[in-house]
Measured scan of single mutants.
Amino acid sequence: GLEHMADEEKLPPGWEKRMSRSSGRVYYFNHITNASQWERPSG
Rank of each mutant, 00 (worst) to 15 (best):
G1Y: 11
G1K: 12
G1P: 11
G1D: 11
G1T: 14
L2K: 13
L2D: 13
L2T: 10
L2F: 13
E3N: 10
H4C: 13
H4F: 11
H4P: 13
H4M: 14
H4T: 13
H4Q: 12
M5I: 14
M5F: 11
M5C: 14
M5P: 13
M5N: 11
M5E: 13
A6K: 11
A6D: 13
A6P: 12
A6E: 13
A6G: 10
D7K: 07
D7V: 09
D7M: 10
D7G: 11
D7S: 10
E8S: 10
E8R: 07
E8N: 10
E8L: 09
E8D: 14
E8T: 10
E8Q: 08
E9Q: 09
E9T: 08
E9L: 07
E9F: 07
E9Y: 09
E9R: 06
E9I: 07
E9S: 08
K10D: 13
K10N: 13
K10W: 14
K10F: 10
K10S: 11
K10C: 14
K10R: 11
K10I: 12
L11V: 08
L11F: 02
L11P: 15
L11T: 02
L11A: 01
L11G: 00
P12K: 01
P12M: 02
P12H: 01
P12G: 04
P12N: 00
P12L: 03
P12W: 02
P12T: 01
P13V: 08
P13C: 13
P13I: 07
P13M: 08
P13N: 08
P13G: 05
P13Y: 13
P13L: 08
G14H: 08
G14Q: 04
G14V: 01
G14L: 02
G14M: 04
G14W: 05
W15N: 00
W15Y: 03
W15Q: 00
W15K: 02
W15E: 00
E16P: 00
E16T: 07
E16D: 03
E16I: 07
E16L: 04
E16G: 03
E16A: 04
E16S: 06
K17I: 07
K17W: 03
K17G: 02
K17N: 02
K17M: 09
K17Y: 04
K17V: 09
R18Y: 06
R18A: 03
R18S: 03
R18T: 03
M19D: 05
M19C: 14
M19K: 14
M19E: 10
M19G: 04
M19R: 14
M19A: 09
M19N: 08
R21D: 15
R21A: 15
R21S: 15
R21T: 15
R21K: 15
R21G: 15
R21Q: 15
S22K: 15
S22M: 08
S22E: 14
S22D: 14
S22L: 14
S22G: 14
S22R: 14
S23G: 07
S23P: 06
S23A: 07
S23V: 04
S23Q: 10
S23M: 05
G24Y: 05
G24W: 04
G24I: 03
G24L: 06
G24N: 09
G24Q: 07
R25A: 06
R25G: 03
R25P: 02
R25E: 04
R25S: 04
V26T: 08
V26W: 13
V26L: 07
V26P: 09
V26K: 03
V26Y: 13
V26I: 12
Y27A: 00
Y27K: 00
Y27W: 05
Y27E: 02
Y27T: 02
Y27R: 01
Y27N: 00
Y27Q: 00
Y27C: 03
Y27V: 02
Y28A: 00
Y28W: 05
Y28E: 00
Y28F: 08
Y28V: 00
Y28L: 00
F29G: 01
F29Y: 14
F29K: 03
F29H: 08
F29W: 10
F29M: 02
F29E: 01
N30E: 01
N30T: 00
N30K: 00
N30A: 01
N30Q: 02
H31K: 11
H31E: 06
H31Y: 14
H31D: 03
H31V: 15
H31T: 15
I32T: 08
I32D: 07
I32A: 06
I32F: 12
T33K: 03
T33N: 06
T33S: 06
T33R: 03
T33Y: 06
T33A: 04
T33P: 01
T33F: 06
T33D: 04
T33L: 06
N34D: 03
N34V: 03
N34M: 12
N34S: 09
N34H: 14
A35P: 01
A35F: 10
A35R: 14
A35I: 15
A35Y: 10
A35N: 07
A35M: 13
S36N: 05
S36I: 15
S36F: 14
S36P: 02
S36V: 15
Q37Y: 03
Q37V: 05
Q37I: 04
Q37T: 06
Q37K: 03
Q37A: 04
W38F: 08
W38L: 07
W38N: 04
W38G: 03
W38T: 06
W38H: 05
W38Y: 09
E39D: 09
E39A: 09
E39M: 09
E39P: 05
E39I: 07
E39N: 10
E39G: 07
R40N: 06
R40K: 10
R40F: 11
R40V: 06
R40L: 06
R40W: 07
R40E: 04
P41T: 00
P41F: 02
P41W: 01
P41E: 01
P41S: 01
S42E: 09
S42I: 11
S42D: 09
G43V: 13
G43S: 13
G43P: 11
G43W: 15
G43Q: 10
G43D: 12
